[in-house]
């Protein structure tokens, strides 16, 4: 059944006075997908997620879940949705188990079995009877995820799910979400870290200034990463002239020349050219754009080197 649309968003807009927080977003998330909304802080990710959950009324546009138009008062709609929005919150005077029991009650699921299962799955056993005011940030995040998962939802909406987790926790949650997706759970998450979503998501939508500027499969991601050749010679000016005469466009940065485009595909050609011209490279390497730089480039917020 993979491929059934679970979330459909059309022309979603949210204005706050003159500020267009979300400016005409269209997206579709299908069953079993892990779709990541990627964007800088303030790009419109959380506002979009809140509109998907009926917490904010859109200025315009439509949202449908499972083919049904979103209605906040449609209780049945929320039975299959689990969510974690922004920083996790819990009642500080209650224990982890008690907080989970409250959610289980409000979600009409058997308290004991649901709580026991999710405590085990999220590794909350050692802190199960600790008051949540005493939890570390990482364990608060686990509790937030546990609350989202306690009723085994078919759709998970997670805002920055890796916030506060240590590297081991990030890996653990990644595996958990991938397992859930493999079992048919649809995951829509937001993040501002491309490296993280590149490992987790199946599809990425880049949101910038309230608009969905790019959508791509994570399979296509390597193709978007720019590569370039970095060359050093004893006489950079002479080497630059040689390369320009051969049709390259070298850019000097400190003590190296950088060559984009075809040079990165055939660095051996560059080496041969320079050797024949009497400017043998003292250093030649193919550099790959890191994901952070790619993200900044895709969002149009590239920082000059």
């Amino acid at each position: 059944m993979t491929g059934d649309p679970v979330v459909r968003v059309h022309g979603l807009v949210k204005h706050y006075g003159r500020v267009r927080a979300v400016d005409g977003i269209d997206l579709t998330v299908t069953r079993g997908e892990i779709y990541a909304l990627l964007g800088l802080n303030g790009a419109g990710k959380t506002t979009t997620i809140r509109m998907l959950l009926g917490m904010i009324t859109p200025t315009a546009g439509s949202v449908s879940l499972y083919g049904r138009p979103l209605r906040q008062r449609d209780r049945a709609m929320w039975a299959d949705v689990g969510y974690l929005v922004e920083t996790p919150a819990a009642y500080p005077e209650l224990t982890v188990t008690e907080n989970l029991r409250l959610v289980a009650r409000l979600r009409n699921v058997p308290e004991k079995s649901a709580v026991d299962t999710v405590v085990r799955d999220l590794g909350l056993g050692p802190v199960a009877h600790r008051r949540t005011r005493d939890l570390s940030l990482g364990n608060q995040q686990r509790l937030g995820l546990a609350k989202a998962l306690i009723h085994r939802p078919a759709l998970l909406v997670l805002d920055e799910p890796a916030n506060g987790l240590d590297p081991a926790g990030v890996v653990e949650i990644r595996h958990l979400l991938q397992e859930l997706a493999a079992g048919g759970v649809t995951v829509l998450l937001s993040s501002h870290i491309l490296a993280e979503v590149a490992r987790l998501a199946t599809r990425i939508g880049i949101i910038h200034k309230g608009r969905l500027t790019t959508e791509m499969s994570t399979v296509d991601l390597p193709g978007l990463v720019r590569r370039r050749v970095a060359v050093a010679t004893r006489d950079l000016t002479a080497a630059g002239d040689v390369l320009r005469r051969a049709g390259y466009s070298p850019v000097r940065r400190d003590a190296i020349l950088l060559l984009d485009g075809v040079a990165a595909e055939h660095p051996d050609d560059v080496a041969t050219l320079l050797v024949r011209a009497g400017q043998p490279p003292t250093h030649l390497a193919v550099e790959q754009e890191d994901l952070e730089t790619l993200f900044l480039r895709l969002t149009g917020t590239e920082v000059a080197p």
Binding site: L53, G54, M55, Q72, R73, R75, A76, W78, A79, V81, Y83, V85, E86, T87, A89, A90, Y91, P92, V103, L106, R107, N108, K147
Partner: peptide, 18 residues
């Protein structure tokens, strides 16, 4: 104050009941 209101908003138990 505890920022827990958001956890009461998209549930099978309606906001009116809460």
């Amino acid at each position: 104050a505890d920022r827990t209101a958001k956890d009461l908003l998209a549930l099978p138990t309606g906001r009116g009941a809460i």
